[in-house]
Design a protein around this nucleic acid. Structure first.
Length: 721
RNA sequence: GGGCCGUUAGCUCAGUUGGCUAGAGCGCUGCCUUCACACGGCAGAGGUCACUGGUUCAAGUCCAGUACGGCCCACCA
């Protein structure tokens, strides 16, 4: 250190560029792949979604991880710190569609010479131009083409923020490597019996027309209404026909339902076995209003005597309880709502001809909401509904990215076992939580309670077009029907494949869709099916055994607490199967950035604060200072005041450094044991305590505590020493 | 309905196994253009530690309960 490096007037401006250039030239953050596992600290960095832009929340949580990375490096560890970009999923799919004016059609063949339209990216062209259909491989190419620009911008911002990432180690979740790992892991799961397909009722999004998983659900409080409907009693428990007594009302059971439109798919009425009001009717039958379909009255302990009239109609399927009842009581399937969310045009075969069919035809083609209004009218006209519907609000299940209530339809889907239907596996996964250190510790409770509350396996197939394809084909029998249970599996060296354009061994393209030929699996995998493999992707599982051995299980997974049930849990499931181990030793959960606009400064600001502006205005160190003041797992208010303080602290630090360096060249070295002045020794003691304190804090991933202590010491040092 | 977290100065928050008159920063008041720093320094005002009980020589800290705020989960009749 020479005096010429000490400026007369220390200034923050340009520090980021200066040091980024040095870091780049020296490759100081490049991973040294010769270090052994115990010398390495490896980080499973969350890949941000590259559609859209980074926001202050990213700056916040990625800074936390970076402080830990830098601490570990100072503590002597070789830090493995890669970065991924997530370009799977609906947001990217939509963005590619709009940007290029294309639509993914897996039935089309790959066109190697396809180029994007000239007006790609032109906002004026959106919605006006003719949509071009392209094959899935072409669509993926366009996605990569579009996201590479975003990735550059993201990388630029992260570099400016000072993240000590190894920028030579990046991945995109849709690239060949990730598709390969994703398909490889799936095929492993398949051969181990951990992945399976089944035709079963599952939650269905009618807008996107795809199945969704339990982890992607969200409850919304919606207005609804109880409709009290009459089911006439047909037979008693002995099977004898029940006649109405002379002059009195026909004997009937009244039920309350919020979904009267599902009366045509009613398969039974259910009440609690202990409910004395309905015990006499168990084993008997009733006739559904309007449609006159005779259904049994059954008993099941899930029925709640205090809800509605205490007896419910079971429809296939109105809600997840219906699925349970249908399965456990061995009831038939009578589906009326199709995958597009509309009532089937054809009158179902179980509905009698005549008035019942006429009634059904008034519902045919309608969506649930309209059908509900229509049937309420009919029920009222027919005198089958008592009084008016009684408005209530109730929770309704939605896909977290959807805007229509989910329906339940029966379809063939792929699942990965996750303990939802297997107590031993469930317990094994809960126990994996004990093998990991949780920061903050109470987050483990969320992990465990999510697993304990699972009610089915992980549904990974999606009826979408963009994503990592399920790497299978099916032979077609002589009648041209797929033989689902004999999938054609690609070999490992073929991966990644796209069954919509690639051909299984022993077949040629001309046999696609032909009797005696083959068909590709049409579904893709859920984005989490790939994201759950980020440790495997980053560490070179099955592709770079040497690197994998030096970095896996990883040391740290930083992530937000809202995706414990999705990303964190699914990653644990995958590592449990793939490695019989945990994916990482430490889970560091970060909190949210609370929007200050909600509190007070919404209009006064007017414009959205983007991270680049913050970094310009306050400097990276100041923004990092603010981020680091948010304690692990704690939601933190966006606070420019903290950034101002951070900026002052940074300047103070530069000036104090200048002052200290003015005393001479510190590289001469000072032996602390030779310091005799009481004042000096006192300061050094205090410093040693601080180092202990900060080290302890960082070992526990508590960067905020470390900052607080260090800052306090620094002010004491400059003021008093 | 079940569970988790929180409630300390006007604001944002520290307070680690219970232990000296409860701390910091911001903001506020007053003073200081001292040669590292006015992007600074010094001094000061400001708190029934949500509430109620309990354990203890001693409780912001432990226990029980209550209230309020937030989050997660739950079978939509």
């Amino acid at each position: 250190m020479s005096d010429s490096r000490i400026p007369d007037k220390p200034d923050l401006a340009g520090l980021e560029d200066t040091w980024n250039a040095v870091w780049d030239e020296t490759g100081i953050y490049h991973f040294d792949a010769t270090k052994t596992r115990d010398e390495v600290f490896s980080i499973d960095t969350p890949p941000p979604t590259v559609s859209g832009s980074l926001h202050v929340g990213h700056v916040f949580s990625y800074t936390h991880t970076d402080t830990v990375a830098r601490y570990q490096r100072m503590a002597g560890k070789e830090v493995f710190y890669p970065m991924g970009w997530d370009d799977n999923g609906l947001p990217t799919e939509r963005r590619v569609q709009n940007y290029f004016g294309v639509r993914c059609d897996p039935s089309l063949p790959y066109e190697p010479d396809f180029t994007a339209p000239d007006d790609a990216g032109d906002p004026k062209a959106v919605g006006k131009r003719q949509t071009i259909s392209v094959s899935r491989p072409n669509f993926i190419e366009l996605c990569v083409q579009l996201t590479v620009e975003d990735e550059k911008a993201f990388e630029g911002l992260f570099r400016r923020l000072g993240l000590s990432v190894d920028w030579t180690r990046t991945y995109e979740t849709i690239n060949d490597h990730c598709r390969r790992i994703s398909q490889l892991a799936f095929l492993d799961n398949l051969s181990a019996g951990q992945a399976y397909q089944i035709e079963a009722p599952s939650l269905w999004e009618v807008t996107f027309q795809t199945a969704v998983a339990q982890a992607e659900l969200e409850d919304k409080e919606l207005p609804g209404a109880y409709h009290k409907l009459r089911f006439r009693i047909v037979r008693d428990a002995s099977g004898a026909t029940v006649e109405s007594a002379e002059g009195s009302d026909e004997p009937a059971i009244w039920i309350d339902t919020t979904r009267p439109e599902l009366v045509p798919s009613c398969v039974a009425l259910v009440a609690h076995p202990d409910d004395e009001r309905y015990q006499p009717h168990f084993g008997g039958t009733v006739s559904s209003p309007l449609f006159g379909v005779e259904v049994p009255v059954v008993a099941h302990e899930l029925a709640q005597p205090d809800k509605g009239t205490g007896i419910a109609m079971i429809c296939t399927f109105g809600d997840t309880t219906d699925v349970t009842w249908w399965r456990e009581l061995d009831l038939p399937v009578r589906t009326v709502i199709q995958r597009d969310g509309k009532f089937a045009a054809e009158t179902p075969e179980w509905i009698p001809e005549g008035a019942a069919t006429e009634a059904y035809q008034r519902l045919a083609g309608l969506r649930s909401k309209n059908a509900q209004d229509e049937i309420a009218k009919m029920l009222a006209e027919a005198g089958e509904m008592e009084g008016d519907p009684r408005p209530i609000t109730h929770p309704v299940k939605f896909f977290e990215k959807g805007d229509k209530p989910l329906e339940i339809v029966s379809s063939r889907q792929w699942y990965i076992r996750n303990g939802g239907r297997d107590d031993d596996l469930r317990q094994a996964l809960v126990d994996r939580g004990d093998e990991m250190n949780w920061v903050p510790s109470y987050m483990q409770t969320r992990f465990a309670s999510w697993i304990e509350g699972l009610n089915g396996d992980w549904l990974i197939s999606r009826q979408r077009f963009f994503g990592v394809p399920i790497p299978l084909w099916y032979p077609l029998d002589a009648a041209g029907e797929p033989v689902w249970d004999q999938p054609l599996v690609p070999s490992e060296d073929q991966l990644p494949i796209d069954p919509s354009t690639d051909v299984p061994a022993g077949y040629d393209e001309s046999q696609r869709g032909q009797a005696g030929g083959f068909m590709g699996e049409p579904d893709i995998m859920d984005t989490w099916a790939t994201s759950s493999l980020t440790p495997q992707i980053a560490t070179g599982w099955r592709t770079d055994k040497d690197l994998h051995a030096r970095t896996f299980p990883m040391d740290m997974r930083p992530q937000a607490h809202d995706i414990i049930r999705t990303w964190l849990f699914s990653t644990v499931v995958r590592a449990h199967f793939d490695a019989d181990d945990v994916p990482w030793r430490n889970c560091a959960l970060s909190g949210w950035i609370l929007d200050p606009d909600r509190k007070k400064m919404s209009k006064s600001k007017g414009n959205v604060v983007v991270p680049t502006e913050l970094l310009e205005q306050y400097g990276s160190d100041a923004v990092r200072y603010w981020a680091s003041s948010g304690r692990p797992g704690t939601d933190t208010a966006f606070d420019e005041g903290q950034m101002k303080i951070g900026r002052r602290l940074s300047i103070k630090l530069l000036n104090a450094s200048k002052f200290v360096l003015g005393f001479g060249d510190p590289s001469e070295g000072i032996d602390p044991s030779k310091v005799t002045d009481a004042l000096d020794r006192s300061m050094l003691d205090r410093l040693a305590d601080l180092v202990d304190d900060a080290t302890t804090a960082f070992e526990a991933f508590d960067y905020a505590r470390s900052l607080e202590r260090t800052e306090a010491f620094f002010w004491w040092f400059t003021d008093n020493y």
